[in-house]
Design a protein around this nucleic acid. Sequence first.
DNA 1: GTTATAGTGCACCGAACGGTTCACTATACA
DNA 2: TGTATAGTGAACCGTTCGGTGCACTATAAC
Lengths: 108, 108
Amino acid sequence: MHYNEPLDRTFFALSDPTRREILERLSRAPATLSQLAGPFGLTLNGVKKHVAILEDVDLVVTEKVGRARECRLGPAQLEDAARWIEQHRRSWEQRLDRFASYVEDRER
Amino acid sequence: MHYNEPLDRTFFALSDPTRREILERLSRAPATLSQLAGPFGLTLNGVKKHVAILEDVDLVVTEKVGRARECRLGPAQLEDAARWIEQHRRSWEQRLDRFASYVEDRER
DNA sequence: GTTATAGTGCACCGAACGGTTCACTATACA
DNA sequence: TGTATAGTGAACCGTTCGGTGCACTATAAC
């Protein structure tokens, strides 16, 4: 019904600090795999796995140019993630307001 | 330097569909562990683990009342997650614009 | 054509994840 | 007081995760 949706994998992709740093790095300029691997102290294979996870949800797009593989930011649907968070931020505030007044009532 | 930050764990907590459903359920009304366990087809212990992960990042708050443990939405800092996504949505658009014009130039 | 460089495929490793079972404690209720 | 109910703790299990090493292919550069 709802398993392994893109939303799952997008949130998961964002849950790793190394992957978020890769995204920040790529938001400045495209880079090849080995250009990424070095600064992060990772193996080429290590970085390739991270990039694969990011590519899976379109956060990154790669293209083979010569013997290098260039990575750049991709057309990710961050709208879904953003929308989920925003919707629930609203539920939260409502809930918290109600809870606050409940506590107030009880403490009065 | 940056490992196991709250942001990591928040995104991770949101990456599981069952946990997101628990949050949606709680956004309607508080519930005890067994009230959650049933509908999700999970063991009491299964649901307890999910709730623990949500509680760890303040997405949920629990309180023991009688022999039951009541769960409700907590004061999570979704601002951080929302801010991260919004910032990078902006980088994305810039990047994609630049990439689009680069492609245009090359195809001309 | 040889050699250095960039990447790939695969197997492996320890740790964490999602989930269960079972034995146990604590509370409600008759 | 006894019994059913809600939760807890710990061990366990198969899978995935993050990361590595190694053998290999493909492209550059002399």
